[in-house]
């Protein structure tokens, strides 16, 4: 039985296309929640939720504050708020200042998820044009979690994965099409 308890994913520029290629490969019986922070310009995240649902065998929903984080569900951070994980596996939101020019910020999600899930967390950093997520990924590894970074050469924009490799390093650095299988292996075996 796997000791993994959650997956957190972060991406920015090119992120939508990347998610559309990773999510279809997830095992429909995945026994952990998947929490996604994807920077989008859109004022409402419901469109993104709808789009991703077409590509995902698991139910996709907007992360709601105070709601319990259920296994087997893919959650997307709402626009304009930081998404945080509380240690009792509930979501919370805040409107604190932007982190790495971003709100929601991948750093905020990764750091709070690392504090909540410790070594049970698998964090994935993918394509993007800024360095948000790199420090968060370091917090994940410091807490004993497992870090996956998209191979920069397979990323639409390589700034984010390169920053992640430089600041945090990775337990696995994989091309886009190998990420889903790695997540299934980590959480199902």
């Amino acid at each position: 039985m796997s000791t993994r308890s959650a997956i957190a994913m972060g991406c920015s520029a090119g992120g939508l296309l990347a998610l559309e290629r990773v999510l279809p490969g997830l095992d429909p019986r995945l026994p952990v929640p998947v929490v996604i922070c994807c920077h989008t310009g859109s004022p409402d995240v419901s469109l993104l939720v709808e789009l991703l649902q077409h590509h995902c065998p698991l139910p996709v929903a907007e992360a709601r504050e105070r709601a319990a984080i259920d296994p087997g569900t893919v959650y997307v951070a709402p626009t304009g708020y930081h998404l945080l994980v509380e240690s009792d596996a509930h979501f919370s939101l805040n409107v604190d200042a932007k982190v790495a020019y971003s709100r929601p910020s991948i750093d905020v999600l990764f750091e709070t998820a690392a504090a909540a899930w410790q070594g049970g967390l698998v964090a994935v950093l993918m394509t993007g044009a800024n360095s948000d997520g790199a420090h968060g990924l370091k917090a994940v590894r410091d807490a004993g979690g497992y870090a996956v970074i998209q191979d920069p050469s397979s990323a639409e924009v390589d700034v984010m994965p390169l920053a992640g490799l430089e600041v945090a390093g990775a337990d696995a650095c994989l091309p886009l099409d190998a990420i889903a299988a790695e997540l299934n292996r980590l959480c199902m075996s």
């Binding site: 509380e86 240690s87 805040n94 750091e111 709070t112 504090a115």
Partner: peptide, 9 residues
């Protein structure tokens, strides 16, 4: 206060 936000602040 919600713990995660308080801790960050």
């Amino acid at each position: 206060y919600a713990p995660a936000s308080l801790k960050r602040r």
